[in-house]
Design a protein around this nucleic acid. Structure first.
Lengths: 108, 108
DNA sequence: ATAAACAATAGCCAAATGGTTATGGATTGT
DNA sequence: ACAATCCATAACCATTTGGCTATTGTTTAT
């Protein structure tokens, strides 16, 4: 029901193919739909649909250049998920703590 | 396709009702199915199903006591998601950087 | 001018998802 | 002993999801 951006992000990343596409875009940078299709192992229309879902969550942006469309990752869109983890992931705080310790030690 | 634990976690948290249940458990601590049902706004069987999905992702544990079952959040299970964010969330690294700065300033 | 390439959309389908009521098994209260 | 409570499972249903092929609109190449 909730059309919040956080919800779109969570839902977008729930699918492994979509995660793979996002991962590929963060690793390799901007890619055309064609390239992503070769990578993803599903049909081109399927990739286009996934990209639409990722777009809705603002996890990717696109740029048209002639007949091809270049997509790139927009990792800032993970913000809502990070916020959520900060609120509800106690383990998370542990990591912060450990990081603090690391930094303190580095400092000594 | 992938039955990895990371995938279970991502999928479990994709549903808003499931997130709400997990949030409630981290905020208020251990709860019976009954209490969660009052909170969640769906039927008891629906809650039980959601809890099964959360269990599969190891996001909750349960403890039976007589006729009631107490569930509690297990935020360590967010680990795989944290790992993923560390790899693919550039924004994430920004936060680390900011934290470092904060800590460095605190230190001065 | 025609053909080929790229990407989005439409239309279809099977499977998964999230919900419901009904039921059953176990425990507790009267 | 009987009734009520708690929770899980079963059976069912509507909707959503993720995939496909076919098509269309552009743009580029011949």
């Amino acid at each position: 029901m909730p059309r919040t951006n956080a919800n779109y992000v969570f839902r977008a990343l729930a699918d492994p193919t979509r995660r793979a596409i996002f991962e590929e875009l963060t690793r390799q940078g901007e890619q055309t739909v064609h390239a992503l299709t070769r990578y993803a192992g599903v049909s081109q229309p399927a990739v286009s649909k996934h990209l639409t879902v990722l777009k809705r969550a603002k996890l990717v942006r696109h740029r048209r250049e002639g007949r091809e469309t270049h997509y790139r990752a927009q990792p800032e869109a993970l913000g809502p998920m990070v916020d959520w983890m900060e609120k509800y992931g106690a383990f998370w705080r542990d990591r912060f703590d450990r990081l603090e310790t690391v930094l303190e030690r580095m400092d000594a």
